[in-house]
Design a binder for these strands. Structure first.
Lengths: 199, 199, 199, 199
DNA sequence: AATGAATGAGAGTTCATTCAT
DNA sequence: AATGAATGAACTCTCATTCAT
C-alpha cells in the first residue's frame, strides 16, 4: 500500500502499521487488541512498544499519516488545473480515486474522525481545507458566487463521503463512473450562482 | 429529554437509558463501562441486566429508539407541506431543529452509524429514507429533474450532517439561522434542473 | 414421582423440590441457578425462600429425603425374606428396581455423594447400612463366613452402583434382567466361604 | 507429586496445575475460583490464561493427565505378572498403592467422573479397561469362567473404589494391608467358577 | 531491537439473596 | 405466602503494558 511505498515493507514498524490499519478499520480501535496486531504483523506483542509509545500513539500516528497522505494527493491534483471549477473537478475525481485505490487509508480516516480528530491540533491541514481553498478562490473570481467557503466546503465533503458510503454499502445501482460524474455536476450546482436555480 | 417524555423518568430502566446515552456519546460505546452507566443512573450494576440483556443490547436498543424518534419527527414535518420543495424545506428545518433540541439523540445516531447500523435489518426505516421519498416524488412531478433519488438523498444528508458538525466544532462563524437558510437554498440547488447551473 | 406421592404435587414447595431435583441432576447443584429452579417450578424466585432457607438448604433437604426414601424401600424389602441370602437377593432386586423406577432420586443420591454426604451427621442411616445389617446377620449365622461386614457391604454397593452406571452409559450389552441376575450371583460369591474359590 | 516429576515444579504452568488439583478436590471445580488457584500457585490470575484457555480447559486437561497416569501405572503392573489371576492381583495392589501414594490424582479422578468424563472421547483408555482386558484373557483361558468382561470389570472397580472410599472416611477398622488382601481375595471370588460358591 | 511470559487492574456478567409491595 | 426488581459481591476472562532475557 502507498503508506509504505517509500519504506521497506518488511520492516517491523511498517508491518505493525499495516496490520493495525486493517484491524482498526475492521474492528475499531478499541475493538482491536495489541495481541491481534502483533499476530497479524508477524511480530511479538512487545515489539510494538519498541516502535510506538502505546496503542493510542499508534492509532493517532496512523491517523495523521492517513490524513496527510490524503490531503497531499488532493493538493497535488489541485495544482494540475487552472480555474476553480477545473480544480474542483480534479479534486473530486482524486477524492473518489483515493477512496477506491486506498480503501483502508480512506476507511481509517472515516473511522478515526470521531476518536482521533479531537486529539490533533486544529492547525493540521485536512482534506476539507483543500476544498475550502478552491472555493475561496472561486468566490473571489466570481465563479462561485456566495459567502462562506467553509460551510460550502462542508457541503462538498459531506456529499462526497455520503456518496462513497452509499456506494460501498451497495445501496446505489449506478456505476462508479456515473456516480463520480453526477457528483461533480451536483457539486458545481451547489456552488453555482443563486439566481439560476430558483427558476 | 424526549426519550423519556411519556415515561416516568425516575424508573430505573429510563435512568439507565439516559445515563448510557450521555456516556456513549462522550466516550463511545466500547469506551463506556457498565460501572459508569450504573453510577450515572444511580442503580446497581447488576440492575442493568434486569432490563437489558447486555451492554451491546442496551446500545443497540438505544440506537433503534433514537433512529425511530428522529425519523418520526422528520416524517411528521414532511406531511405539513404539499410540494416536494416545500416538504424538503420543512424536513431540513426539522433536521436542524432536532440536532439542536435533542443533541444527545442526534449525536448518538452519528456515533452509532459505524457500529450499530450494521446490526439492524435493512428494512428499518432511517432518516435518509424520508429524503429519498421526497426527492422521488419531486422527480416524478418534474420539480427535481434527474435520476437517482438515493444518491441525491445521500448528497442532502451529507450536506446536512457536515454542516451541523462544522457548526458544532465552531469552525463556522455564521448564525445557526443563516446556516439553515443557506443549507435549504443549497439543497434546492443540488436538486435543481441541470441546464441552469452550467452557464 | 414418589417424592410427592403423599403431598399435593401442585403445591409450590413440591414443585420447587421437583424442579430442583431435575436440574441438580442435569447440571449439578452449583451449576443450577435459583432462577432456573423458579422458572421450571413455575414460581417466583423469591418464593423459593418462603419454603427453604437457601439453595444449599434445598439441596441438602432433598438429599436427605432421597436417601431416606431409598433406604426405606430397601429396608421394607429386606423384611420380606427370612434368610440372609434371601434378604440379600431381595434387597439387590429392590436396589435395581429403585434405580429404574426413580431414576432422578437415584441419580441425585449419586450426585450428592460428594457434596452433601459430608454435611449430614454420621448417624443418619444410609442404604449401605441395610446391606451391612444383612451381611452381619449372615456372618453370625455362618451363611456368609468372614470378618468385616462394613467392608463387604462396601463391596456389594460398589458392585451395584457400578453395574447400574455402566448399564446407563450403554457400555453393557446385556439385558437389565440378566444384569440383575448376574449381580445377585456375583454378590453371593463375594460373600461365600473362603475355602471354595481358591482351588 | 508424580504429575510434575519430570518437569520443573517451579514453572508457573506446573504450579497452576498443582494448585488447581488440590483445590478442585477440596472444593470441586465450580467451587474453585481462578483467584484461589492463582493465589495458591503464586502467580497472577491472568497468568493462568497464558497456559490454559479457560478454567474448564485446565480442569479437563488435568483430568486427562490424571486418568492417563493412573492407567499407565496399572498397565505397567499388569505386565509384571503372567497369569490372569496374577495380573489381577498385581493390578489391584497397584490400584490401592496409587490411591495411597497419589491421593490427589486419585481423588481428582473420582471427582471428575461426573463432570469431565462426558467431555472426553470414548476412545480414551480408562483404568477400568485394564481390568476388562485381564478378565477377558482370563475368560478365554478358562481361569475366570463367565460371560461379560465389562460387567465384571465394573464389579471389580466398584469394589475397589468403595473399599478405598470407606477406608478414607474412617468407617473401616481394618489395616490398609488387610483391606488390600481381602479385596484381592474377594475379587477372585467374584471372578471364580460358578459351581463352587453355591455348593 | 526483539521476545513473550507475567502482570493486575478492570471489564462484562452472573447469581443467591433481600425486601417493598 | 407470593412476587420480581434490586442488589452487590464475586465470578471468569481480557488486555495494554512491562521487563528479564
Amino acid at each position: 500500500m502507498i503508506l509504505s511505498m517509500s519504506r521497506k515493507i518488511s520492516e517491523p514498524a511498517e508491518r505493525i502499521r499495516s496490520a493495525a490499519l486493517s484491524l482498526f478499520i475492521k474492528n475499531g480501535i478499541t475493538g482491536t487488541t495489541t495481541k491481534e496486531i502483533a499476530r497479524e504483523a508477524g511480530v511479538s506483542e512487545g515489539s510494538i512498544y519498541n516502535h510506538f509509545e502505546s496503542k493510542g500513539d499508534l492509532a493517532l500516528k496512523l491517523f495523521l499519516e492517513c490524513m496527510a497522505m490524503f490531503r497531499e494527493v488532493l493538493d497535488k491534483k489541485s495544482l494540475e488545473a487552472d480555474t476553480p471549477s477545473g480544480k474542483l473537478e480534479a479534486v473530486i475525481h482524486a477524492f473518489f480515486d483515493f477512496a477506491r485505490r486506498e480503501p483502508e487509508v480512506y476507511a481509517y480516516i472515516m473511522v478515526g474522525h470521531f476518536t482521533e480528530l479531537g486529539k490533533i491540533p486544529k492547525t493540521v491541514k485536512k482534506p476539507v481545507d483543500v476544498f475550502s481553498a478552491i472555493i475561496k478562490s472561486g468566490m473571489e473570481s466570481g465563479e462561485f458566487p456566495g459567502h462562506d467557503e467553509k460551510l460550502r466546503a462542508a457541503y462538498i465533503t459531506g456529499m462526497l463521503t455520503r456518496a462513497i458510503l452509499f456506494h460501498k454499502t451497495g445501496v446505489l445501482r449506478m456505476s462508479y463512473r456515473a456516480i463520480v460524474r453526477e457528483t461533480v455536476k451536483s457539486s458545481l450546482k451547489v456552488l453555482g450562482s443563486d439566481g439560476c436555480v430558483q427558476k
